[in-house]
């Protein structure tokens, strides 16, 4: 056996356990799920899909989830980029510690975190009171059970993911590129826009996709902070699976959510890819 053949055999051997695990625990269940979603009427039918796509209520749930994903992504991007940029460019040895601090929300379980938000969002909770005091909302307003409340609570936990992704990418961008742009006459903001943000595109896309897909599939926070009036995909899937035991329908909703997430990822990637081609 020559050495290259041996090397590929060793590589295959090393990959095999992970590949097997992946196939067993991910690919196979996905196929089962897909199969299940076509199980009504048996043995093969599209009734579950027709029921979802033909019903404005369920389409509204879908739109709600997509809007949630979009809003959380935008909030995380707008808040996360400046933070990630400052941390990446900070010339202090505390930067590492500060980065660690931003990940704190990830250390707390989703249920505990959501309960904390609920306490703040109740009519008498601190945040709701602040808003009431500002006069922007009616006196009995509460953030609990509102779309904005869910966006805030989700953005809080997903922000670290955005920051970590962007931080790594911005750290990889030579700082002298910004200096070069400035010495050529670009104001710092212009340099940021023309150079750093263009080059951080990959990270922006990765972070946004991560945050978007985690938002549309989030369950605990939407169901707890959003309450009974929040109709999101993951909550609906949970209801159909565990409360109403309509597995084919739940599988169909899951498949639709998966397909849409994939489509969003591909479109987003294409758009950013085109942008990069243009820049060439």
């Amino acid at each position: 056996m020559n050495s290259s053949a041996r090397r590929s055999l060793v590589a295959a051997g090393l990959l095999a356990p992970a590949a097997l695990l992946f196939a067993l625990l991910f690919v196979w269940p996905q196929f089962r799920l897909l199969g299940l979603s076509f199980g009504n009427p048996a043995p093969f039918g599209l009734a579950s899909y027709e029921r979802f796509l033909g019903d404005s209520y369920y389409l509204g749930v879908l739109a709600n989830s997509l809007a949630l994903g979009a809003c959380v992504t935008v909030v995380c991007l707008v808040l996360g980029f400046p933070l990630a940029f400052l941390l990446a460019r900070a010339e202090t040895r505390w930067a590492g510690l500060l980065l660690l601090l931003t990940t704190f929300p990830l250390w707390v379980s989703a249920v505990v975190r959501s309960f904390a938000w609920m306490v703040l969002f109740y009519r008498g909770g601190t945040i709701s009171r602040l808003l009431q005091g500002s006069g922007l909302v009616p006196p009995d307003f509460q953030l609990l059970g509102t779309f904005s409340g869910v966006v805030i609570a989700l953005a809080q936990v997903l922000l670290p993911i955005m920051i970590l992704t962007l931080y790594a990418v911005i750290r990889g961008i030579d700082r002298d590129l910004e200096h070069a742009a400035m010495s050529l006459g670009a104001a710092p903001v212009v340099a940021l826009w023309l150079v750093t943000i263009r080059l951080a595109r990959g990270g922006i896309m990765a972070g946004s996709l991560l945050v978007f897909s985690l938002s549309v599939s989030a369950f605990a926070t939407p169901s707890m902070v959003g309450g009974a009036r929040a109709h999101f995909m993951a909550v609906t899937i949970y209801e159909q699976t565990l409360e109403l035991l309509d597995w084919p329908f739940a599988a169909a909703i899951s498949a639709i959510l998966l397909a849409i997430s994939l489509a969003v990822a591909l479109t987003y990637g294409r758009l950013l890819g085109e942008g990069r081609e243009e820049a060439r």
Binding site: M118, Y122, R123, G145, S223, M224, G227, A228, R229
Partner: peptide, 14 residues
């Protein structure tokens, strides 16, 4: 409208 039994006490206590 609430979902979890755990919320009953919170709701009353507010």
């Amino acid at each position: 409208i609430f979902r979890a039994a755990a919320e009953v006490q919170t709701l009353f206590s507010t």
